[in-house]
Design a protein around this nucleic acid. Structure first.
Length: 595
DNA sequence: TTAAAGCCTG
DNA sequence: CAGGCTTTAA
């Protein structure tokens, strides 16, 4: 099987796009300098190496090599040397692949090192701790298993046990790698966030982003930072590419090994003994199959990176909102919609593995009941409550206003499970990203509020239908609708309070004729209103609003002049007039990325 | 009965 | 701006 045909040349060209600081050779620095991304890279390297070593041990040198080879408490400094040494004993095939992977890792490391010039020390320490902990747990677990007495009949247990253990170890290694990827992603995300906050600071210094100047939030978000949005995009693309490929290849290796193991050792389950063994596997590894937090994190890793062979068209759909999310995210990664949004995940990576173990490499996923996608509704629910709490930011999905697009709607054929191919997993992850990306977010954001205020310049009494049309990125429910309605109610309240105030002031000031009352952009009343609804003053208030405001003020003036305000409901007559003066909101506002 | 308006309050 | 409350209209 061809693991990764076209990427060599691609890597080379990608590197050319990088900024000079990212173009350094991967081996310029001593590997001992754990700085920014290098610890992750190192751990990833170790994990992949361990995987290969362990696999080889399991497959070729069973069973003692693993037990004697690794001491969880005495690694660190000498590890790399040991790895290098043990790497020398690899078969040729593994050696080349290993070198290949190493080169890729080095590139990722280089990029990350360049990005994280000022890393968050505590965050890094945390992820490092986590990584080390993961690894130690893994090793301890392996050691513990080695010590476990064998209760089974020796005649059959050796084959069974070795296979079980191989599978188990493979799964553990896979999970370990996924954890590491997750850590890596958090680091990248952290850098993004840091960059974003810097952008924010810079942006606040020169305000005035006029709407008619064509500025949209998307543009604002992606610009700046690394010098230009072009550079940013290149960096992002390169990172994603490298990450995805490196990890996919690593996992591919696991699956390839697994495939070999299954085909060579267990073959189709004709004997009852065999089938019993296969059934027992999931029970023997509950940690792999439970929906633990670690599993969730692992899934997240794949959701964000996408498949190795992802088409460009697909990536365009997925990536844009992803970047927007990543850059804008005002909260830590673990609260992001993406992470919360896994709720619809019908397949765990471990489940795929389980399926693989149960039904063999040539079965199709359609045999898995969990692949039958749950209904869109049920896919939305798991994160509803959380989304409400965290008030996630809008997706900025551009043209995609259709809301949730389920996988079913994509009319995709069932994925054939190829044992040595991670494609299905990757594609599933990609589907999930798609799904999440097309999701409309529940909860209104400050941007929605800002947009609503600007809309008030056109409509004082928007219907709930109008609101639904103009907030396509919001998943409406009773609560959200009420909140939006309430916003406009509050806007009106302020508006009418100002009107009454200025009308009374006019009367106090001795104005006699309604015709003497007018509102211009220089009026104090207009300034007050503009300050309230258009605080950043980055929006050109339509003339019509000035007219309506003038009429409103005149109405108030007249009513008060005629002492109508003695009637408790004297304002209602004015409301009735004003509500007819709403104008159409420009179509521009319908874009979810308007702000 | 319900959604929304409107008013008041914090 | 949101929450609580009453009123209103469908």
């Amino acid at each position: 099987m061809n693991l990764s045909p076209p990427e060599q040349s691609m890597d080379g060209s990608k590197a050319e796009h990088l900024l000079p600081c990212f173009r350094r050779s991967a081996f310029d620095e001593p590997l001992a300098s754990y700085h920014s991304g290098s610890i992750i890279s190192h751990l990833l390297r170790k994990t992949i190496h361990n995987k290969l070593t362990s696999l080889d041990n399991n497959l070729l040198y069973l069973p003692s090599a693993n037990a004697s080879g690794v001491d969880p408490e005495s690694n660190s400094a000498d590890d790399f040397a040991q790895e290098e040494q043990s790497r020398m004993s690899f078969k040729d095939e593994d050696l080349s692949v290993s070198e290949h992977l190493q080169a890729k890792r080095a590139r990722v490391e280089n990029i990350i090192r360049g990005m994280a010039a000022s890393p968050n020390a505590s965050g890094e320490a945390e992820s490092e701790c986590e990584a080390v902990r993961c690894r130690r747990d893994l090793l301890k677990e392996n050691k513990r298993k080695q010590r476990l007495p064998q209760h089974q009949d020796p005649s059959q247990s050796s084959a069974k046990t070795s296979k079980d253990e191989e599978c188990h170890k493979l799964k553990e290694q896979l999970q370990s790698m996924q954890r590491l990827l997750h850590q890596l992603q958090e680091k990248i995300s952290h850098v993004y966030d840091q960059n974003y906050s810097e952008n924010e600071d810079a942006r606040s210094e020169h305000s005035s982003l006029r709407l008619d100047g064509g500025y949209k939030d998307q543009v604002k978000v992606e610009s700046g930072g690394f010098g230009s949005d072009r550079a940013m995009k290149n960096l992002k693309e390169t990172l994603k590419c490298e990450l995805t490929r490196t990890v996919s290849e690593s996992v591919d290796m696991v699956f390839k090994k697994l495939s070999t193991t299954l085909l060579n050792q267990s073959s189709p389950c004709h004997s009852p003994d065999c089938s019993e063994t296969e059934k027992r596997i999931p029970e023997d590894s509950p940690s792999d199959l439970s929906d633990s937090e670690e599993n969730v994190k692992s899934r997240h890793c794949f959701e964000s990176t996408g498949p190795e062979h992802q088409t460009e068209a697909l990536s365009l759909v997925v990536r844009k909102p992803s970047l927007s999310q990543a850059v804008k995210r005002p909260f830590p990664l673990h609260q992001t919609p993406f992470q919360i949004g896994y709720g619809g995940a019908p397949l765990h990576d471990s489940q795929i593995l389980e399926h693989l173990l149960k039904y063999g490499p040539h079965s199709t996923f359609s045999a898995l009941p969990c692949l039958e996608r749950s209904s869109p509704d049920s896919m939305e629910r798991p994160w509803e409550s959380v989304a409400m709490r965290s008030k996630v930011s809008s997706g900025h999905l551009g043209q995609h206003q259709t809301g949730l697009m389920s996988v079913d709607a994509l009319c995709l054929p069932h994925v054939k499970l190829e044992c040595a191919d991670l494609q299905s997993m990757a594609e599933r992850s990609s589907f999930m990203s798609l799904n999440i990306s097309f999701e409309r977010f529940e909860g209104l954001t400050p941007n929605h509020l800002k947009k609503a205020k600007l809309m008030f310049f056109y409509t004082r009494y928007p219907s709930s239908n109008l609101l639904k049309n103009f907030f396509p990125d919001v998943k409406f429910n009773r609560c959200i609708t009420s909140q939006l309605i309430k916003w406009f109610s509050n806007f009106r309240e302020f508006y009418y309070i100002q009107m009454e105030k200025f009308a009374r002031q006019a009367i106090i000031d001795g104005v006699n004729d309604v015709k003497d009352i007018s509102i211009t952009r220089e009026s104090e009343l207009f300034r007050a209103l503009n300050m309230h609804y258009n605080k950043a003053n980055d929006f050109q208030v339509p003339d019509r609003f000035l007219e309506v405001a003038e009429i409103t003020l005149q109405e108030f003036f007249s009513a008060i002049s005629l002492s109508k305000d003695s009637d408790p409901s004297w304002k209602k007559a004015i409301y009735k007039i004003i509500c007819k003066l709403d104008s159409d909101v420009p179509e521009d506002f319908k874009s979810p990325s308007y702000l």
